[in-house]
Amino acid sequence: MFRIHCPHCREARSEEEFSYAGEAHIPRPVDPSSLSDSEWGEYLHTRTNPRGPHREMWVHTAGCRRYFNVLRDTVSYKILAVYPVGEMPPEQGEA
């Protein structure tokens, strides 16, 4: 159990108020019908699954119900950054 700072509510809240919403920065292909099966499968299923900093989406399900991005270390669970959807994480994010 950890606490996450919601950038919309502007305070740290208990993890149980949130839901994990998958890896961040995976754009939906503009024209899915032009993709091969393997390209579409790549988009749907292939994830980076890093050991270390991971860029991921969270939604404040029981609070403001808004999405945001989190840079979280998958080893220590330490949250390194919280940043808005549509933006890239601050410097250490290119891990």
Binding site: R13, S14, E16, E17, A62, G63, C64
Partner: peptide, 10 residues
């Protein structure tokens, strides 16, 4: 005011 979990309800 805050929306939160209250036991297992919101």
């Amino acid at each position: 005011c805050a929306q939160t979990v209250f036991a297992k309800a919101t």
